[in-house]
Write a protein that binds this DNA or RNA. Structure first.
Lengths: 227, 227
DNA sequence: AATTTATGTTTCAAGTGTGAAACAAAAGGA
DNA sequence: TCCTTTTGTTTCACACTTGAAACATAAATT
């Protein structure tokens, strides 16, 4: 078992392994080998063993892994056995959609509050979640023991909002604003930039090497200036 | 100007550059140097120049970049000057939320149709977008000239849905199902796995090295089995 | 007891992305 | 005309991730 610092790519794969195991468990399987797992879900068996080895020895030589056992370990490693309270800043379309996004509940997160600056929205409810004045952010965070913040405001406000979040002592932030925010100190920020993803698809559809689509225009690559 | 294949990380940065330029343009700036851009938005000037150089010579030595000019070039490179039609498969919470997500409209995408298998939902409308029977997928795609698909169904159906999508000739797919789908042939898939992002935050909050939080339990790392 | 199976672990090569450094070339200003 | 600025371009070193290979070790089976 190693003690080096663990890459985020590794923990991301742990999430995937856990889902695969849930799948197998639902099908009634009791054990699985790294090879079996790899073949079934298009993974790499050596990598599975390596990833798991960062955290302990969970397998049994000659047998493989006891699925229920490994699920419990991964659940604990990923912290999915502990509840967290989420505050969503920005009660616009995205924010309100996220407020009753079932993915939060599926994981160990529950949405405790929405925040907005718009006086018309404050006091209203989205599902069971109340919209609070952003001015009362720090108090409300304390009151509801919010430890995860979701940024769902326009890009121009994101940096300010992040500052408020970090000032309130929250250490985990998910940012949906289309601007990459950098973590300061021991705060973890996950940027989920849908705009970049969309524009990445747009680029793919438009790029000259995309011969099969009818989108291709000759000389689209020659965007060179001659002045 | 190079002709090598271009990394997705590069085009992702182009998206970011474009937003920064839009920012500057809104502030009335006319030109900007790679250094100025880098300092203002915490980027790397050498990388900016390198990224842009893949696509042409857009700058003016001794001056920098003419902002409007570069915006036009980036818009064209990213294909943001061409409209695309989006079909969303899965009219659940996420699917319907995405149906009127303003981010689509902000980019060059417009949502043309939702699809679902639930007979109760078919025929209803979400905003201006109608929900169609998934059985009529191929026809509807043709009818509305849909060229981008969004998968917003539970994980267990995602692979089947992807097959239908590729069979219909669509080349660009955004997958929100919590299972990484692999692209076949010349189909581009962007996986947006919110579950992984959430569990990544969960891991961060739970991990033993996170000394400041009160979540820490001694020996949490020693999940080693002795049997 | 011997064999088989599959983990745990190390090592290595290959590929990729990043960022610094250096420099020629072009444009504008003094 | 000379100098300054800044791009365009190459080169290099560094870091990181992946995936293959090899092998000792442990458990189960025959």
């Amino acid at each position: 078992m190693k003690v080096e610092k663990i890459s985020e790519l590794t923990t991301n794969r742990l999430s995937i392994y856990l889902r695969c195991l849930n799948d197998l468990a639902a099908q009634g399987a009791k054990t699985v080998s790294s090879d079996g797992l790899a073949k079934k879900f298009h993974l790499n068996s050596a990598q599975i063993r390596k990833d798991l080895a960062y955290f302990g020895e969970f397998g049994v030589r000659g047998v493989g892994y006891y699925i229920d056992d490994l699920r419990k370990h991964l659940t604990k490693i990923l912290g999915l056995d502990k509840k967290h309270c989420v505050g969503i800043i920005g009660a616009g379309r995205l924010g309100t959609a996220l407020a009753d996004y079932y993915g939060f509940a599926q994981s160990n997160f529950s949405v405790a509050a929405l925040f907005d600056a718009d006086q018309d929205k404050i006091g209203q409810k989205v599902g069971t979640v109340e919209i609070f004045d952003i001015k009362s952010f720090a108090e409300t965070v304390k009151k509801y023991k919010i430890d995860v913040a979701v940024i769902a405001v326009p890009a121009e406000f994101a940096q300010d909002v992040l500052e408020q979040i970090t000032n309130s002592g929250i250490k985990a932030v998910m940012n949906f604003a289309p601007i990459p925010l950098r973590a300061k100190g021991d705060v973890k920020i996950k940027n989920v930039d849908l705009t970049i993803s969309l524009e990445s698809l747009s680029y793919f559809l438009a790029k000259p090497s995309n011969k099969n689509g009818k989108i291709l225009k000759p000389n689209a690559a020659k965007s060179r200036i001659k002045q």
